[in-house]
């Protein structure tokens, strides 16, 4: 029994170590990670595969490990914004291209601003900041567009139109997730 508990503890610790390692910016593949934590390579592979199947870890062609979509959702869930991940990852680059402006998703919870996602326009690194447009997604989240410094009125209007449409899509994603949660709670 004690052996079983030890094995269980080691298995869970492996998962915890891997997530903490990735969060700290550690670069690794399965073999180097196993070596680092002193686990058998096959044991590490099994844990990684499990996390990969659950969407917490991604591996590229060379086997390098990176946080998966669900790992990011865990962070966004702490801000009650997990439902935004897919929509924002897909729509922010499109908004940036449509408006030719830098698009950001920002959390404003508890008086602290955290830039959750940012897709910079191609001019952004060269030119200074222009006018900023903002749309509320939720009480704690904002969608922002930073326009080119010399953007004219027509460009501002077009950018505002795109911003509002994308913000509405993100609000819909949050509302759909809230509905689903409510239905599940009702079912339970």
């Amino acid at each position: 029994m004690a052996d079983e508990i030890m094995a269980e503890t080691a298995g869970v610790a492996l998962i915890g170590d891997l997530l903490a390692h990735l969060a700290a910016g550690g670069d690794a593949n399965a073999a180097s990670f196993a070596k680092q934590v002193g686990a058998a390579r096959s044991t590490a592979y099994q844990a990684i595969e499990k996390l990969e199947r659950a969407g917490f870890v991604e591996r590229d062609a060379r086997g390098s490990l990176a946080p998966g979509a669900n790992a990011a959702r865990l962070g966004l869930a702490s801000l009650r914004l997990a439902a935004l991940l897919s929509a924002a990852e897909a729509l922010l680059p499109a908004l940036r291209n449509d408006a030719d402006a830098t698009a950001s998703l920002v959390s404003v919870a508890k008086g602290t601003e955290i830039v959750l996602m940012r897709r910079a326009a191609s001019w952004d690194a060269r030119e200074g900041a222009g006018k900023e447009l903002e749309a509320a997604i939720a009480e704690t989240a904002r969608l922002r567009l930073r326009l080119r410094p010399r953007a004219n009125e027509a460009e501002r209007r077009a950018a505002k139109f795109s911003l509002e449409q994308t913000a509405e899509a993100l609000r819909r994603a949050l509302a759909d997730a809230a509905d689903l949660r409510e239905r599940r709670a009702g079912g339970a």
Binding site: P67, L74, G75, S78, I114, A120, W123
Partner: peptide, 25 residues
């Protein structure tokens, strides 16, 4: 706190990938 750090790490990777793809206009 690890959840937010994981989200930030993924975002950093996606942002770098996006910048590599971005064609100048």
């Amino acid at each position: 706190p690890v959840g937010l750090a994981l989200a930030a790490r993924r975002e950093a990777l996606l942002r770098a990938e996006d910048q590599r793809r971005l064609a100048p206009r």
